[in-house]
Design a protein around this nucleic acid. Sequence first.
RNA 1: GGGCCGUUAGCUCAGCUGGCAGAGCAGCAGACUCUUAAUCUGCGGGUCGAAGGUUCGAUCCCUUCACGGCUCACCA
Length: 538
Amino acid sequence: MHITRRPDILTIMSKKHDQPVHWADIHAQNIIRRRGEKDVYVCASGITPSGTVHIGNFREIISVELITRALKDAGKSVRFIYSWDDYDVFRKVPKNMPDRKLLESCLRKPITLVPDTAGTYENYARANEKPLEDLLPEVGVNPEYIYQAERYRRSFYARQIRTALEHRDQIREYLNEHRSEPLPEDWMPVSVFSSFTDKDTTEVLSWDGAWEITYRCLETGQQETLDLGTASGVKLPWRADWPMRWAYEEVDFEPAGKDHHSQGGSFDTSKRVVEVFGGTAPYSFQYDFIRIKGRGGKISSSSGDVVDLAGVLEIYQPEIVRYLFAGTKPNSEFAVSFDLDVLKIYEDYDTCERIYYGAQEVGEKRRAKESRIYELSQVDRPAQEMPYQIPIRHLCNLIQIHSGDIEQVMASLPALREDQKEKLRRRCICAANWVRLYAPEDFRFSLRSPAETAPEISGPVRTAAASLLPVIEQLDAYDEKQLSEAIYEAAHSAGCEPKELFLGCYQVLIGKDRGPRLANFIKTCGREKILPLFEPYR
RNA sequence: GGGCCGUUAGCUCAGCUGGCAGAGCAGCAGACUCUUAAUCUGCGGGUCGAAGGUUCGAUCCCUUCACGGCUCACCA
């Protein structure tokens, strides 16, 4: 008898295994050691919503989520902040956006002041933010959002901007350490959006040493003097902005992509610049990019369709999306697959689940590791008892047998408990989507309708098919093996090759030469679906 | 030019803080009169990129080199 109940988390993290086995726990331990004991650990993530937020960006979010989970499991309090850098400049029109002309006229404006050309949201930035915000809770991610545009526009960072100006020589020096061309002597660590055009095509002329700054709009030639305490268009450039926020939020952990993490990259300069703001650089690690397999190959294909979280959730259950990321070390590249690999991923996940619940025996080391991956993959806590498992391949068949009617599929499953239905329904939807969108042609079928003209078959094959009728009428009396034998018997007594009969049967059932393993397939479909299809050959 | 990552079975990779080299797939053999990359059983398969060093012991740590990928030095 298998133990299919949830193990105690303390068993997994007990003294016996006080060495953490999972990367998230190792990083969490490092954060605690590096930053010292604190009441609350601040974990930060952030991106610029300058286009559809794709699955590559999601890696950053989920990495932080996994670390916050690990910190919490280590008994710590955590604040997970997510910064929408929506006061960044609109620099390039992505391929998948409508009304490119209008968007092009908005280049150099902050993305929060660019319209949503699809007409759904208040502005362009919001159009990219909101769909993701709506989806994140589904995968168990619930950060505290910070909208940088909103902050900058109400002069929230006036004090910090002044600090940057006061230390502009120091900041310039830090940045110059890694620049091929040094910044000019009169460089100012601010950029200004013109109040005449909203664009950042401006030149800062002077700073009065306190709160006033004067700039010229390059497009209109007009000059204006602003008060930092009330101005809405002044912001820090990225390499000053990022460390400023580390200091302001007292960030303990923030990962970054490899573009930021190279030597001379923005993390490198920021960990110097942050001193100016009286802070220290957070603990960090670098995560690698992710690739796409079985769908274009690039996250953002040239046709303009982007692989985003919604696109991945079409195919993968939320806990399996988490599993993909939790099961891969952040600094290694991996591919999100839409091809046959999908089946393998589901099978791997199910194996991981069985290991967690003790329904599959493995070595102690592997058990500890898989169990932790399983826990981190769950949107909430793992269920008390093991969820209903159904092999994904079989499910794909069931869905096609029932013409995509998921409620029928669920009804056909014996011993399905009420509390298991929600997850299973989700798996059904994903399987149906996969079959429809990505499965190879060989994999797809649909049962013929009795109303259609029955395929022409003749000779011994027809005789054999006819002789199967009594068997199908009594289908419930046969188990799979017996049915299989009956099929061979039918072929033999009619004097045809079993192969021919198989071929004929698939023609009758699904109008193809091949299909799912026949005996099992017929049993699964049941007498009611099969009999009418064979009736014409009586 | 700097940095980071990688190089392990035919393929894809695991091997996380040094202790007899692993998995899946492919291959081979056998079984099922069989079919969604069919299923089951068994088997073979490796100079752990190269050369040094540390160690009782190195795929693992250090140094150098080769090849491959990414990234920074503009902006964000």
